[in-house]
């Protein structure tokens, strides 16, 4: 009996969803703001990647709120699981020699890759979120290979606080100069070069460091909880 009610429920749900979704015809976007942003984003911000222009310039406040949500989630995980800086771990086994050596070789390459993704966020696909995740993975790789060197919670918290403050300070400087919070304010430069798009790469650097520190913190507190 319960099986049939389940099937009935799921079928009804699919039909309702299909009826809601199919009127949204592909290619006829109901939103008009996209066309306006496409037409003026290069002039306004100087970023070649229009998604970066939307994330940091047009909807910068949204990104700030998103950072707040991520910070809340990371803090809640810290409260729930408890953050303990374990200095010596004898119980958990270390990975083998090959994994430990490969982690040491891969770590600088991953760091370079993460910084490349972050700093080229206004030119190519990528940016602070992706680069931050790679950064966190790079530091967590060392912990996975050798459980002796943990990610220090104090260090990541300092980095996180400084990066978050830098993001807001960049917005406040824009407020002092132009009267609008979080508007691009440095020289736009030449389109397509590394030092272009004004303050957007700086914002993305702060965002990437903050996301990376938060995710590393999160992974470390998940890995360190004792059974």
């Amino acid at each position: 009996m319960q099986r049939w009610t389940t099937i009935l429920f799921l079928t009804g749900l699919s039909i309702v969803l299909f009826a809601i979704i199919t009127p949204l015809v592909l290619g006829q976007s109901p939103m008009l703001v996209g066309k306006l942003i496409n037409a003026s984003a290069v002039n306004d911000t100087g970023a070649a990647n229009l998604v970066t222009a939307v994330v940091l310039a047009y909807r910068g406040l949204d990104t700030l709120g998103e950072l707040a949500i991520l910070f809340t989630a990371a803090t809640a995980i810290g409260i729930i699981l408890g953050t303990t800086d374990k200095t010596q771990t004898t119980s958990s086994p270390t990975a083998g020699f090959i994994v430990a050596t490969a982690a040491k070789v891969l770590f600088p390459l991953l760091l370079v890759f993460a910084l490349y993704i972050i700093l080229h966020g206004h030119l190519t696909p990528g940016g602070g979120f992706q680069g931050g995740a790679v950064l966190a993975a790079a530091f967590f790789l060392l912990t996975l290979a050798d459980s002796g060197n943990n990610i220090k919670h104090k260090v990541t918290q300092v980095i996180e606080a400084l990066a978050g403050t830098a993001f807001i300070v960049l917005g406040l400087v824009s407020f002092a100069l132009q009267g609008v919070f979080l508007q691009p304010w440095l020289d736009k430069g030449e389109l397509g070069s590394l030092f272009s798009a004004g303050s957007l790469p700086l914002l993305y650097l702060a965002l990437g460091l903050k996301v990376g520190a938060e995710l590393a913190n999160l992974l470390s507190s998940l890995a360190n909880v004792e059974k």
């Binding site: 976007s29 939103m31 703001v33 996209g34 066309k35 942003i37 496409n38 037409a39 984003a41 290069v42 229009l50 998604v51 222009a53 939307v54 994330v55 047009y58 909807r59 949204d62 990104t63 998103e66 949500i69 991520l70 989630a73 940016g127 979120f129 995740a133 996301v211």
Partner: peptide, 20 residues
Amino acid sequence: ATAQMVDPVPQAMVLTAIVI
């Protein structure tokens, strides 16, 4: 070129939504 591009606004929202 930009007149032929897809709408970047939903992509920016999904970008943050995945991390959240």
